[in-house]
Protein backbone atom coordinates (compact mmCIF):
# COMPACT_ATOMS: atom_id res chain seq x y z
CA UNK A 1 0.00 0.00 0.00
CA UNK A 2 2.89 2.29 -0.74
CA UNK A 3 1.19 3.38 -3.97
CA UNK A 4 0.64 7.12 -3.49
CA UNK A 5 -2.24 7.46 -5.98
CA UNK A 6 -5.39 5.84 -4.63
CA UNK A 7 -7.31 3.36 -6.77
CA UNK A 8 -10.42 5.44 -6.47
CA UNK A 9 -10.89 8.96 -5.27
CA UNK A 10 -13.98 11.05 -4.84
CA UNK A 11 -13.75 14.82 -4.45
CA UNK A 12 -16.69 17.13 -3.75
CA UNK A 13 -19.28 14.74 -5.19
CA UNK A 14 -22.78 16.21 -5.39
CA UNK A 15 -25.86 14.43 -6.68
CA UNK A 16 -29.25 16.09 -6.97
CA UNK A 17 -32.44 14.60 -8.41
CA UNK A 18 -35.30 16.47 -9.99
CA UNK A 19 -38.45 15.28 -8.26
CA UNK A 20 -42.04 16.52 -8.52
CA UNK A 21 -41.60 18.07 -5.07
CA UNK A 22 -38.43 19.92 -5.97
CA UNK A 23 -34.74 19.20 -6.13
CA UNK A 24 -33.62 16.46 -3.76
CA UNK A 25 -30.03 16.90 -2.58
CA UNK A 26 -29.12 13.23 -2.27
CA UNK A 27 -25.34 13.61 -1.98
CA UNK A 28 -23.78 16.86 -0.78
CA UNK A 29 -20.08 17.24 -1.33
CA UNK A 30 -18.44 14.06 -0.14
CA UNK A 31 -14.75 13.21 -0.31
CA UNK A 32 -13.09 9.87 0.20
CA UNK A 33 -10.42 7.66 -1.28
CA UNK A 34 -10.02 3.94 -1.62
CA UNK A 35 -6.62 2.26 -1.70
CA UNK A 36 -5.88 -1.04 -3.43
CA UNK A 37 -7.13 -3.98 -1.42
CA UNK A 38 -8.94 -1.78 1.07
CA UNK A 39 -12.45 -2.44 2.41
CA UNK A 40 -14.50 0.69 3.04
CA UNK A 41 -17.94 0.59 4.59
CA UNK A 42 -20.48 3.34 3.89
CA UNK A 43 -22.73 3.24 6.92
CA UNK A 44 -26.02 5.05 7.38
CA UNK A 45 -29.79 4.93 7.49
CA UNK A 46 -31.86 4.50 4.36
CA UNK A 47 -32.03 7.77 2.46
CA UNK A 48 -28.63 8.92 3.65
CA UNK A 49 -27.20 8.75 0.13
CA UNK A 50 -25.15 5.56 0.41
CA UNK A 51 -26.63 3.72 -2.55
CA UNK A 52 -26.74 6.85 -4.70
CA UNK A 53 -23.05 7.38 -4.00
CA UNK A 54 -22.33 3.81 -5.05
CA UNK A 55 -24.19 4.16 -8.33
CA UNK A 56 -22.51 7.50 -9.00
CA UNK A 57 -19.18 5.64 -8.83
CA UNK A 58 -20.28 3.62 -11.88
CA UNK A 59 -21.99 6.54 -13.62
CA UNK A 60 -25.21 4.57 -13.48
CA UNK A 61 -27.53 7.37 -12.38
CA UNK A 62 -30.12 8.43 -14.98
CA UNK A 63 -28.61 11.34 -16.88
CA UNK A 64 -31.82 13.24 -17.54
CA UNK A 65 -33.12 13.19 -13.98
CA UNK A 66 -29.93 13.73 -11.99
CA UNK A 67 -27.42 16.54 -11.70
CA UNK A 68 -23.94 15.40 -10.75
CA UNK A 69 -20.89 17.51 -9.96
CA UNK A 70 -17.53 16.87 -8.37
CA UNK A 71 -14.82 14.51 -9.42
CA UNK A 72 -14.56 10.73 -9.41
CA UNK A 73 -11.24 9.22 -10.43
CA UNK A 74 -10.86 5.52 -11.03
CA UNK A 75 -7.35 4.16 -11.65
CA UNK A 76 -6.30 7.63 -12.74
CA UNK A 77 -9.22 8.20 -15.14
CA UNK A 78 -11.75 10.99 -14.62
CA UNK A 79 -15.02 9.02 -14.70
CA UNK A 80 -17.30 11.92 -15.63
CA UNK A 81 -14.94 13.18 -18.32
CA UNK A 82 -14.89 9.89 -20.23
CA UNK A 83 -16.98 9.03 -23.29
CA UNK A 84 -19.83 6.59 -22.58
CA UNK A 85 -18.15 3.74 -24.46
CA UNK A 86 -15.05 3.97 -22.30
CA UNK A 87 -17.21 3.94 -19.16
CA UNK A 88 -18.90 0.79 -20.46
CA UNK A 89 -15.47 -0.81 -20.75
CA UNK A 90 -14.72 0.00 -17.12
CA UNK A 91 -18.03 -1.33 -15.81
CA UNK A 92 -17.83 -5.00 -14.94
CA UNK A 93 -14.13 -5.06 -15.78
CA UNK A 94 -12.48 -2.59 -13.39
CA UNK A 95 -15.46 -1.76 -11.18
CA UNK A 96 -18.36 -4.11 -10.68
CA UNK A 97 -21.38 -4.22 -8.46
CA UNK A 98 -23.26 -6.68 -6.28
CA UNK A 99 -26.87 -5.58 -6.04
CA UNK A 100 -29.07 -5.69 -2.97
CA UNK A 101 -31.82 -7.90 -4.40
CA UNK A 102 -30.44 -10.54 -6.78
CA UNK A 103 -33.95 -11.68 -7.73
CA UNK A 104 -34.49 -8.27 -9.33
CA UNK A 105 -30.96 -7.71 -10.57
CA UNK A 106 -30.65 -10.96 -12.51
CA UNK A 107 -32.46 -11.26 -15.83
CA UNK A 108 -35.32 -13.73 -15.18
CA UNK A 109 -35.31 -15.29 -18.66
CA UNK A 110 -31.60 -16.08 -19.02
CA UNK A 111 -29.78 -18.88 -17.22
CA UNK A 112 -27.21 -18.04 -14.56
CA UNK A 113 -24.47 -19.54 -16.72
CA UNK A 114 -25.45 -17.43 -19.73
CA UNK A 115 -25.50 -14.25 -17.66
CA UNK A 116 -22.02 -14.85 -16.28
CA UNK A 117 -20.61 -16.00 -19.60
CA UNK A 118 -21.90 -12.98 -21.53
CA UNK A 119 -20.06 -10.69 -19.12
CA UNK A 120 -16.79 -12.52 -19.74
CA UNK A 121 -17.29 -12.52 -23.51
CA UNK A 122 -18.10 -8.81 -23.34
CA UNK A 123 -14.80 -7.87 -21.71
CA UNK A 124 -12.32 -10.49 -22.78
CA UNK A 125 -11.41 -12.07 -26.06
CA UNK A 126 -12.55 -15.57 -25.26
CA UNK A 127 -14.83 -18.07 -26.95
CA UNK A 128 -18.28 -18.84 -25.61
CA UNK A 129 -17.13 -22.31 -24.60
CA UNK A 130 -14.22 -20.87 -22.63
CA UNK A 131 -16.54 -18.33 -21.01
CA UNK A 132 -18.89 -21.14 -20.00
CA UNK A 133 -16.00 -23.02 -18.43
CA UNK A 134 -14.97 -19.90 -16.51
CA UNK A 135 -18.59 -19.45 -15.36
CA UNK A 136 -18.49 -22.93 -13.86
CA UNK A 137 -15.24 -22.13 -12.05
CA UNK A 138 -16.81 -18.97 -10.66
CA UNK A 139 -19.86 -20.80 -9.36
CA UNK A 140 -17.52 -23.27 -7.66
CA UNK A 141 -15.52 -20.39 -6.23
CA UNK A 142 -18.61 -18.94 -4.55
CA UNK A 143 -19.46 -22.42 -3.24
CA UNK A 144 -22.70 -23.08 -5.03
CA UNK A 145 -23.50 -26.78 -4.56
CA UNK A 146 -23.66 -28.89 -7.76
CA UNK A 147 -22.40 -25.90 -9.69
CA UNK A 148 -22.48 -27.62 -13.06
CA UNK A 149 -26.23 -28.14 -12.84
CA UNK A 150 -26.75 -24.58 -11.62
CA UNK A 151 -25.24 -23.12 -14.78
CA UNK A 152 -28.44 -24.14 -16.53
CA UNK A 153 -30.70 -22.84 -13.76
CA UNK A 154 -32.84 -19.74 -14.03
CA UNK A 155 -32.83 -17.23 -11.16
CA UNK A 156 -36.31 -18.25 -9.99
CA UNK A 157 -35.14 -21.83 -9.56
CA UNK A 158 -32.58 -20.91 -6.87
CA UNK A 159 -32.80 -19.96 -3.21
CA UNK A 160 -32.13 -16.40 -2.08
CA UNK A 161 -28.69 -17.21 -0.72
CA UNK A 162 -27.72 -19.10 -3.84
CA UNK A 163 -28.91 -16.26 -6.04
CA UNK A 164 -26.73 -13.80 -4.13
CA UNK A 165 -23.76 -16.15 -4.50
CA UNK A 166 -24.45 -16.27 -8.23
CA UNK A 167 -24.65 -12.46 -8.27
CA UNK A 168 -21.25 -12.31 -6.55
CA UNK A 169 -19.81 -14.79 -9.05
CA UNK A 170 -21.14 -12.56 -11.84
CA UNK A 171 -19.56 -9.46 -10.30
CA UNK A 172 -16.20 -11.23 -9.98
CA UNK A 173 -16.30 -12.65 -13.51
CA UNK A 174 -13.60 -10.35 -14.90
CA UNK A 175 -11.51 -9.98 -11.74
CA UNK A 176 -12.44 -6.36 -11.02
CA UNK A 177 -10.08 -4.15 -9.04
CA UNK A 178 -13.02 -2.61 -7.19
CA UNK A 179 -16.17 -4.34 -6.01
CA UNK A 180 -19.14 -2.22 -5.01
CA UNK A 181 -21.59 -4.08 -2.79
CA UNK A 182 -24.98 -2.47 -2.19
CA UNK A 183 -26.38 -3.97 1.02
CA UNK A 184 -25.49 -7.44 -0.26
CA UNK A 185 -26.99 -9.26 2.71
CA UNK A 186 -30.08 -7.19 3.46
CA UNK A 187 -32.47 -9.29 1.37
CA UNK A 188 -31.26 -12.57 2.87
CA UNK A 189 -32.29 -14.71 5.86
CA UNK A 190 -30.28 -14.04 8.99
CA UNK A 191 -28.51 -17.41 8.83
CA UNK A 192 -27.53 -16.94 5.20
CA UNK A 193 -26.37 -13.34 5.77
CA UNK A 194 -23.33 -14.44 7.74
CA UNK A 195 -22.36 -17.08 5.15
CA UNK A 196 -22.49 -14.56 2.32
CA UNK A 197 -20.54 -12.03 4.36
CA UNK A 198 -17.83 -14.55 5.18
CA UNK A 199 -17.71 -15.54 1.52
CA UNK A 200 -17.21 -11.91 0.48
CA UNK A 201 -14.47 -11.48 3.07
CA UNK A 202 -12.69 -14.63 1.92
CA UNK A 203 -12.94 -13.66 -1.76
CA UNK A 204 -11.64 -10.18 -0.96
CA UNK A 205 -8.65 -11.63 0.88
CA UNK A 206 -7.95 -14.09 -1.97
CA UNK A 207 -8.21 -11.62 -4.83
CA UNK A 208 -6.93 -8.51 -3.08
CA UNK A 209 -9.65 -6.41 -4.66
CA UNK A 210 -10.83 -3.21 -3.02
CA UNK A 211 -14.40 -3.22 -1.73
CA UNK A 212 -16.90 -0.51 -0.94
CA UNK A 213 -19.72 -2.00 1.06
CA UNK A 214 -22.88 -0.06 1.65
CA UNK A 215 -24.79 -1.14 4.71
CA UNK A 216 -26.98 0.04 7.54
CA UNK A 217 -25.82 -2.88 9.66
CA UNK A 218 -23.03 -2.00 12.09
CA UNK A 219 -22.30 -5.70 12.55
CA UNK A 220 -21.51 -6.01 8.85
CA UNK A 221 -19.18 -3.02 9.08
CA UNK A 222 -17.42 -4.41 12.13
CA UNK A 223 -17.05 -7.77 10.43
CA UNK A 224 -15.57 -6.57 7.15
CA UNK A 225 -14.33 -2.98 7.12
CA UNK A 226 -10.82 -1.55 7.23
CA UNK A 227 -12.30 1.91 7.19
CA UNK A 228 -15.78 3.23 7.89
CA UNK A 229 -17.55 6.34 6.59
CA UNK A 230 -20.78 7.29 8.33
CA UNK A 231 -23.28 9.09 6.11
CA UNK A 232 -26.13 11.39 7.09
CA UNK A 233 -28.31 13.43 4.72
CA UNK A 234 -25.86 12.99 1.86
CA UNK A 235 -22.75 13.94 3.80
CA UNK A 236 -20.00 11.86 5.33
CA UNK A 237 -20.19 13.01 8.94
CA UNK A 238 -17.35 10.86 10.19
CA UNK A 239 -14.74 8.68 8.57
CA UNK A 240 -11.74 6.86 9.90
CA UNK A 241 -10.51 3.37 10.60
CA UNK A 242 -13.14 0.83 11.61
CA UNK A 243 -11.73 0.66 15.11
CA UNK A 244 -11.82 4.43 15.57
CA UNK A 245 -15.29 5.04 14.23
CA UNK A 246 -17.05 2.01 15.66
CA UNK A 247 -15.44 1.97 19.11
CA UNK A 248 -15.14 5.66 19.86
CA UNK A 249 -17.46 7.54 17.54
CA UNK A 250 -17.05 11.33 17.75
CA UNK A 251 -19.90 12.71 15.69
CA UNK A 252 -23.15 12.91 17.69
CA UNK A 253 -25.03 11.12 14.89
CA UNK A 254 -22.55 8.24 14.84
CA UNK A 255 -22.71 8.04 18.60
CA UNK A 256 -26.50 7.93 18.46
CA UNK A 257 -26.61 5.46 15.59
CA UNK A 258 -24.39 2.94 17.32
CA UNK A 259 -26.22 3.34 20.60
CA UNK A 260 -29.54 2.65 18.87
CA UNK A 261 -28.41 -0.65 17.41
CA UNK A 262 -28.49 -3.88 19.34
CA UNK A 263 -25.41 -5.95 18.79
CA UNK A 264 -23.30 -8.47 20.60
CA UNK A 265 -21.91 -7.14 23.86
CA UNK A 266 -24.48 -4.39 24.07
CA UNK A 267 -27.42 -6.74 24.43
CA UNK A 268 -28.53 -5.56 27.82
CA UNK A 269 -28.36 -1.91 27.00
CA UNK A 270 -31.50 0.06 26.31
CA UNK A 271 -32.20 0.69 22.65
CA UNK A 272 -31.64 4.43 22.38
CA UNK A 273 -33.38 5.56 19.23
CA UNK A 274 -32.31 8.99 18.04
CA UNK A 275 -35.27 11.31 18.50
CA UNK A 276 -36.71 12.93 15.38
CA UNK A 277 -36.54 11.87 11.75
CA UNK A 278 -33.98 12.24 8.96
CA UNK A 279 -34.30 15.60 7.16
CA UNK A 280 -36.26 16.22 3.98
CA UNK A 281 -33.66 16.16 1.19
CA UNK A 282 -35.62 18.71 -0.84
CA UNK A 283 -35.38 21.26 2.01
CA UNK A 284 -32.07 20.83 3.82
CA UNK A 285 -31.35 23.38 6.57
CA UNK A 286 -28.57 25.92 5.91
CA UNK A 287 -26.64 24.66 8.92
CA UNK A 288 -25.81 21.16 10.10
CA UNK A 289 -28.45 18.74 8.82
CA UNK A 290 -28.31 16.73 12.03
CA UNK A 291 -28.69 19.73 14.34
CA UNK A 292 -32.48 19.43 14.77
CA UNK A 293 -31.98 15.95 16.28
CA UNK A 294 -28.72 16.64 18.08
CA UNK A 295 -28.45 16.65 21.87
CA UNK A 296 -25.35 18.87 21.69
CA UNK A 297 -26.87 21.49 19.40
CA UNK A 298 -25.48 25.01 19.80
CA UNK A 299 -26.08 28.32 18.07
CA UNK A 300 -23.11 27.78 15.77
CA UNK A 301 -24.71 24.60 14.40
CA UNK A 302 -27.47 26.49 12.59
CA UNK A 303 -25.34 29.26 11.13
CA UNK A 304 -23.52 27.42 8.38
CA UNK A 305 -22.16 24.07 7.35
CA UNK A 306 -20.06 22.52 10.10
CA UNK A 307 -16.35 22.39 9.21
CA UNK A 308 -14.63 19.16 8.33
CA UNK A 309 -12.22 18.68 11.18
CA UNK A 310 -9.22 16.39 10.95
CA UNK A 311 -8.57 15.01 14.40
CA UNK A 312 -5.27 14.01 15.95
CA UNK A 313 -5.83 10.33 15.03
CA UNK A 314 -6.35 11.31 11.36
CA UNK A 315 -10.09 10.65 11.30
CA UNK A 316 -12.36 13.30 9.80
CA UNK A 317 -15.46 14.57 11.58
CA UNK A 318 -18.06 17.03 10.32
CA UNK A 319 -19.00 18.72 13.57
CA UNK A 320 -18.26 21.99 15.36
CA UNK A 321 -17.63 19.99 18.51
CA UNK A 322 -14.80 17.89 17.13
CA UNK A 323 -11.33 18.73 18.34
CA UNK A 324 -8.90 19.47 15.53
CA UNK A 325 -5.45 18.08 15.51
CA UNK A 326 -3.15 20.43 17.38
Amino acid sequence: MSDPTPLLSVTGLNVAFQTPRGTAQAVNGIDFTLARGEVLCLLGESGSGKSVTLRALMRLLPEQRSRISGRVTIAGEDLYGLPERRVEDLRGKVVSMVFQEPMLALDPVYTIGAQIAETIVRHERVSKAEAGRRALELLEKVQIPSAKRRLEAYPHEMSGGMRQRAMIALALACNPAILLADEPTTALDATVQMQVLLLLRRLQAETGMAVIMVTHDIGVAAETADRVAVMYAGRIVEQGTAAQVLKTPQHPYATGLFASTVHAGLKDRRLDAIPGAPPDLTALPPGCAFAPRCARRREACDVGQPPKIRMADAREVLCVDAVAAG
Binding site: L60, R85, E88, M97, E101, L106, R122
Partner: peptide, 20 residues
Protein backbone atom coordinates in the same frame (compact mmCIF):
# COMPACT_ATOMS: atom_id res chain seq x y z
CA UNK B 1 -36.45 -2.77 -13.89
CA UNK B 2 -33.35 -3.32 -11.76
CA UNK B 3 -31.82 -5.95 -14.02
CA UNK B 4 -31.35 -3.34 -16.74
CA UNK B 5 -29.20 -1.35 -14.32
CA UNK B 6 -27.36 -4.56 -13.50
CA UNK B 7 -26.74 -5.24 -17.19
CA UNK B 8 -25.26 -1.76 -17.56
CA UNK B 9 -23.24 -2.33 -14.40
CA UNK B 10 -21.52 -5.30 -16.00
CA UNK B 11 -20.61 -3.22 -19.03
CA UNK B 12 -23.21 -4.44 -21.53
CA UNK B 13 -23.62 -2.09 -24.45
CA UNK B 14 -26.90 -0.74 -25.85
CA UNK B 15 -27.40 -3.58 -28.31
CA UNK B 16 -26.98 -6.26 -25.66
CA UNK B 17 -29.29 -4.45 -23.24
CA UNK B 18 -31.84 -4.20 -26.04
CA UNK B 19 -31.55 -7.94 -26.67
CA UNK B 20 -32.34 -8.66 -23.02
Amino acid sequence: REFVQALKAKGMRRGAVMRH
